[in-house]
Design a protein around this nucleic acid. Structure first.
Lengths: 199, 199
DNA sequence: ATGTTTCCACCTAGGTGAAAACTT
DNA sequence: AAGTTTTCACCTAGGTGGAAACAT
C-alpha cells in the first residue's frame, strides 16, 4: 500500500468544482464504463500547493476499491443494496497526467485536469484507460511523486476526496443522476425538449 | 546562426509525406497566416534516426527567412515577382514539440508531428503560434537538442527540407494551390459540387 | 430478470476556404 | 488597386444518453 509524505513540507491538493462534486455525491455518483472507454463527468481537477519549485513531479490518478462488495440499485426504494461479493480488481493500474512530469513551479501555476482519462470495463485496458468493475464502488486517489534529477522517486504523496467516490455502471441506475449529468455536462443533452434549440 | 552536429554519430531526420510536399512545392506552396493563427497544411511530420536511446532530446520547429524580399503574385502570368524589400522578422521564435523533451528511444519509435503549430501575422504571437510576414518566403527547420541529466544542452542538430518552403499569405494567390489544399486537406472542402455529398 | 453491448441522433469543439467588408 | 480582417457555411473529430438488441 501507499506511504504518506513524511517530510516537514506538506503538499496540499485542492479539489476543483467541489460544489459540483457534492451535488453528484448527494445523489450517489455513477460513472459509465464502456468497452471503448468513457470519460468521467465531473472530471477530477486539482490545484497543487507546497511543491518545491525546482523539483520535478509526476501527478497520477488511481482508483481504489471502497469495498469488496457488488451493489444493485433497487428502483422502488431508490436505494443501493449489497448484492453479493465483488470481483478482484486488476492490480497496479495508474494514469499519469500527460503534462507531467513537470517542474513544481509549472504544476502549481495551472489546474491539473484529468478530463482525458477513460474508464472501461475491458479486461485489457488500452493506453489512457483504466479498467474498473461494474456495480462496484471506487474512490479516485491523486498521487504526487517528486522525482530527482536521475529519475528516482524521492517523495510520494497521496490525496483522496470522499465526495468523488462513485459506483461504476454500464448504464445509469438512478434517473436523478442522469438528469444532473444532462444538466451539467455540455456534451450530454439527451433528447431535446419540445420547442427548445430547434431551427 | 546554427552550429551543426560534429560528432561521429549522425542524427538523421526523415520528412514524412514527401510526395505530398513535392506536389505543393511544384505549384509554389502558400501558407495562410491569420490573427488567430492557422495550421500548416501539409503539416511538418518527421521520423528521427540515430538518437542515443538513453539521452533526452528536445525537437523544435523554426522558420528561416529565405530572403529579405517581398513578393506579389501576378495573375496574368501566374508567376511570383519580387515587389520590394521585405520586413524584419521577429527574432528567436521557436516552437518546441509538446511531446519533447523525451528519451531518444521514445522519439525514434514514433512520428513527430508538428500539426498543432499555428502561423500568425500577429506581432505578439500567443503560445503555440509563430509570427511570420505576409508575402515573404520561409523554410521550416527542425532542431534536435540533446539534453544531459541536469538540463544542459550537449548537442544540437538542424535539418531542413527545400520542398517544405512556402510563401506566407493572408489569402491564397494561386488557385491551383487552393484546389490542391481542398483536394488533400480533410477539413477543407470549400463549396460543394452539385449532387455530391448531399442528403 | 438483470446487466451488457451496439448503434445512433444530438451535441461540443474546432479546422477549412469563400465572400464580403474593411483598410491603406 | 492591393492586401487584410471578419464572418460564415461546411466540414472533421469526438463526447453524450437513449433505445434496441443481445447475453446470462
Amino acid at each position: 500500500s501507499v506511504t504518506d509524505d513524511t517530510s516537514e513540507n506538506t503538499i496540499q491538493v485542492e479539489l476543483c468544482q467541489n460544489e459540483l462534486w457534492h451535488a453528484f455525491h448527494n445523489l450517489g455518483t455513477e460513472m459509465i464504463i464502456t468497452k471503448t472507454g468513457r470519460r468521467m463527468f465531473p472530471a477530477i481537477r486539482v490545484k497543487l500547493h507546497g511543491l518545491d519549485p525546482g523539483y520535478k513531479y509526476s501527478v497520477s490518478l488511481e482508483f481504489s476499491q471502497m469495498d469488496k462488495q457488488k451493489y444493485r440499485y433497487v428502483y422502488h426504494s431508490s436505494k443501493w443494496m449489497v448484492s453479493g461479493l465483488g470481483d478482484e480488481m486488476i492490480r497496479d493500474q495508474i494514469y499519469r497526467h500527460p503534462d507531467s512530469p513537470a517542474d513544481g513551479a509549472v504544476l502549481e501555476s495551472q489546474i491539473v485536469s484529468f478530463e482525458r482519462i477513460k474508464l472501461t470495463n475491458n479486461d485489457s485496458p488500452k493506453y489512457g484507460q483504466i479498467s474498473l468493475l461494474s456495480m462496484q464502488r471506487f474512490v479516485p486517489r491523486i498521487h504526487v511523486h517528486q522525482i530527482s534529477g536521475d529519475g528516482i522517486k524521492v517523495r510520494h504523496f497521496v490525496a483522496s476526496f470522499p465526495q468523488t467516490s462513485f459506483t461504476a455502471v454500464t448504464a445509469y441506475q438512478n434517473q436523478e443522476i442522469t438528469k444532473l449529468k444532462i444538466a451539467r455536462n455540455p456534451f450530454a443533452k439527451g433528447f431535446r425538449e419540445a420547442g427548445k434549440n430547434r431551427s
